[in-house]
Amino acid sequence: MNAYYSVLKLRLLTGMQYRAAALAGVATQFFWGFMYLLIFQAFYQQALHNPPISLNELVSYIWLQQAFLAFIMLWFRDNELFNLITTGNIAYELCRPCGIYGFWYAKLLAQRLSSAFLRCFPILIVAFLLPEPYRMKWPPTFTSFLLFLAALMLGLLLLVAISMFIYISVFVTMSPVGSLLMFGVIGEFFAGLVIPIPLMPSWLQKVTNLLPFRYTADFPFRVYSGHIPQNEALTGLFIQLIWLIVLVWLGRMALNKALRRVVIQGG
């Protein structure tokens, strides 16, 4: 456990060194959030039917997306890991005293935590201070806030488990860009990052419900605004947990298989 903690701390420190990068990231995400809001506002203004998610709920949804972008997007590359795999230097990694899956998982988790830690607060603070109708709202009850926190954390763990598959797939494709592209485009669409899931046609919503992606982003953010009621949220947390267990289990298996092949081929 200590090794994992050290990795996390080191990452946080390196992240802090790059203040300009952090500031630039905050500004960029703020802009994106704002732009999405302007577009949705334009759509909502002359909507004929009542949309399935209110503009207020959507505002929180968008700002949370931007603040916790590091928790939810699959485009988040660790070139070090990619290089290890494509150059065959993975052999060194096999010498480490802890399991590779756990070690990489901790590394990726740490990266996302440090990045989000630096960026989420400024974005959230500004989002709470904005004029209407762009201002971010508090969650309706304290319970939904707690549920949101739980869902967000489980969502993060789930996302890292999904992103592990990107690295594992590179063993097969040998093309980091190709793998990222594939996972990025599909995963982010079904996580509601292109358009919010409640605004999708119902047949598509059914598809997203069968996939793990929406539990990383869409689910926690709608728990926050109360768009998902509390009892449903509890079920959702349970589903997150099951996905997490299944994906970690599958990931470990796939990674071990990939590594065995590397060892047999002699790197």
Partner: peptide, 16 residues
């Protein structure tokens, strides 16, 4: 000047 340590890094966020 690059500094080490968490507190130094925090400081560097605002002043270098």
């Amino acid at each position: 000047r690059r500094s080490t340590g968490l507190r130094q890094a925090m400081k560097a966020l605002f002043y270098r």
